[in-house]
Design a binder for these strands. Structure first.
Length: 271
DNA sequence: CTGGTGACCTGGCTGC
DNA sequence: TGCAGCCAGGTCACCA
């Protein structure tokens, strides 16, 4: 799925087309995505205005004139906006139609995404309240990473993919950032030095920033709000390159499995 | 509390 | 061609 850069790209793409607009109707075409879609959502959204839109980790939050809407893209979710009426195709699970004729449409082949109505403060919602710091924010740095890695026995890759430690780093960018920092994915978190933590926090920041600038990564089917692919794939140095030569030293990249996810690293460049 | 695994769902690819 | 089996950008819920 979309990791943080793809969610950010999506948010930027839809924002200008939905901000300050009034919702005319909500049309769901599925009972449930990851969770059942609230039966009152049609009524709840009717006539509400989209006041602002923001991202928290991989979640998109639409702040409405009253209440909030939480959107997660799961593994295969996409949002796009258009103003020419189109017949919804298979896997196009819901539309939010605005009074000016524009539509926000959600597509998700695997239905791991979510659409949730929130009445209270969003940051107190159970899906958001335990999230770790934003990797591109000021509170995420080497010092923070050093403090959270102490006493942790799990591999560093598993740790940085834990949304409660730092939110938004998925499998692609975890692999890439560890390569950039020269750290083995299986290294025990508590064995990272202060320098390792500085390097890794910087690598995560750099990898995500570059991916956002490239419009995200398209592996198979990610497209942004205007259906354009992301261009970061050509920058990937280890992800999806198992057994191919390291682009830095030529050594054969190792392919292993961690927590049921594919991990690729260079046995020479990463220690 | 920590850490590991199964489950959710569909489609594409590989290999027999 | 057909089909079984495996894999995929996420992460919650549950269990030891």
């Amino acid at each position: 799925m979309p990791e943080l850069p793809e969610v950010e790209t999506t948010l930027r793409g839809i924002s200008k087309r939905i901000l300050n607009k009034q919702i005319n109707s909500f049309e769901p075409r599925t009972e449930k995505l990851r969770w059942p879609i609230n039966k009152n959502l049609k009524k709840f959204l009717k006539n509400k205005k989209v006041c602002s839109a923001e991202r928290r980790g991989k979640y998109i939050i639409l702040n409405l004139s009253k209440g909030h809407l939480l959107i997660h893209l799961g593994m295969s979710g996409k949002l796009r906006v258009f103003n020419k009426p189109t017949e919804p195709k298979k896997h196009e699970h819901w539309d939010i139609n605005f009074t000016d004729g524009w539509t926000l449409r959600y597509t998700d082949i695997r239905k791991f995404g979510a659409l949730i109505k929130i009445d209270t403060k969003p940051d107190q919602h159970k899906l958001l309240k335990n999230l770790g710091p934003e990797p591109l924010g000021n509170s995420f740095n080497g010092e923070y990473l050093f403090s959270v890695t102490r006493k942790k026995t799990r591999p560093i890759k598993n740790l940085i993919m834990d949304a409660n430690v730092v939110t938004g780093v998925g499998n692609i960018y975890a692999n890439e950032a560890l390569f950039l920092a020269g750290i083995r994915p299986r290294k025990q978190s508590r064995r990272l030095s202060k320098t390792n933590c500085e390097d890794l926090s910087r690598a995560i920041r750099q990898t995500l920033t570059e991916a956002i600038e490239a419009g995200g990564t398209t592996l198979k089917d990610y497209t942004n709000a205007s259906e354009a692919p992301g261009y970061f794939k050509k920058e990937l140095r280890v992800y999806d390159r198992g057994n191919l030569p390291c682009l830095t030293c030529g050594a054969k990249l190792k392919l292993i499995k961690q927590a049921n996810r594919q991990t690729v690293y260079c046995p020479v460049c990463q220690n």
